[in-house]
Design a binder for these strands. Structure first.
Lengths: 152, 152
DNA sequence: GACCGAAATTTGCACTTGCAAATAATAAAG
DNA sequence: CTTTATTATTTGCAAGTGCAAATTTCGGTC
């Protein structure tokens, strides 16, 4: 086994860099990385129960619960009791949450663009597709349908 | 922007899964994820100063210092003062560290194999290459030479 | 050969994390 | 309608984490 060929290594290395490069922008906006993950998930998928949000963001259940505490304090999200099932909350963006997200998004896009400056459209598409396929091949136990939809 | 097309999202999602799937095996061996990262880095690259190890593993400097404390306690690594420069330590695997690593490696390989079961050799090579390229495109500020060598 | 800025590593501190147990609400059965 | 099993979420606790400051050593300069 060669380190530079070991996929978990290659993947997490890139992931860490994305995080490292995003952090200064997020700090300036007073948002931590986990909150940012939640923000984009909600921004694009709309209100979600905590469980779905945990799947969506890969943030641990209990951790997410406390991330939401922070976010609520900073008026980024709101917990609304589900009318159908009172065990469940729907987490939704506040107006402020939406506006903060929209302020950060351009930087996120720019970072991605910078990282993929040397990529052709075809390469980009391939990379996305292969990452999706890789994800699908991991931990097949979890509910596949949901995950597949996410991968789309 | 679509969530499923956003690279940081796709990458970190896969990374989290790799970690999640590896954790049970690591727990059984009494090793945490960070220690595992250090183990494979040392196993493949040999003794390293803390700084290089931090680059190699993407683990924050101060965090790594304490990860090494844990690892030293569990007799996985040893700190040896550099003869040339007494500010620096060379971190090296102990015999036990090597043997623990070799015990875990097959599972790591199996996990990767399982995740990439549907991949052709060509796809695998492409994925690795594109991840390397993506890494290179990120955070161009850091010392490129070192990073490029690592990406090899 | 004492002085000063820079480099390698560690530590203080306040905050974040994940596991497992607790809470709260629903659903199904008797 | 009480009991019991199940699901959604939160919390107690013991670690783990990152930032910024401290420590130790180096290399050059006066």
């Amino acid at each position: 086994m060669e380190l530079g060929a070991y996929l978990p290594y290659l993947v997490n290395r890139v992931g860490q860099r994305f995080i490292g490069d995003m952090t200064p922008v997020l700090n300036e906006a007073g948002v931590d990385i986990q909150s940012w993950r939640v923000l984009i998930a909600l921004y694009q998928r709309g209100g979600q129960p905590v469980g779905a949000l945990s799947d969506l963001t890969s943030i641990n259940f209990s951790t997410l619960s406390r991330v939401l505490d922070r976010m609520e304090k900073r008026d980024l999200v709101r917990r609304r009791r589900d009318a159908e099932d009172a065990r469940s909350f729907t987490i939704e963006l506040t107006g402020n949450g939406r506006s903060v997200t929209e302020k950060i998004l351009p930087y996120a896009a720019e970072l991605e663009a910078q990282a993929t400056g040397d990529f052709s459209e075809a390469e980009l598409a391939t990379l996305r597709q292969l990452l999706g396929k890789l994800y699908a091949g991991l931990d097949g136990d979890r509910e596949q349908p949901t995950d597949d939809r996410l991968a789309g």
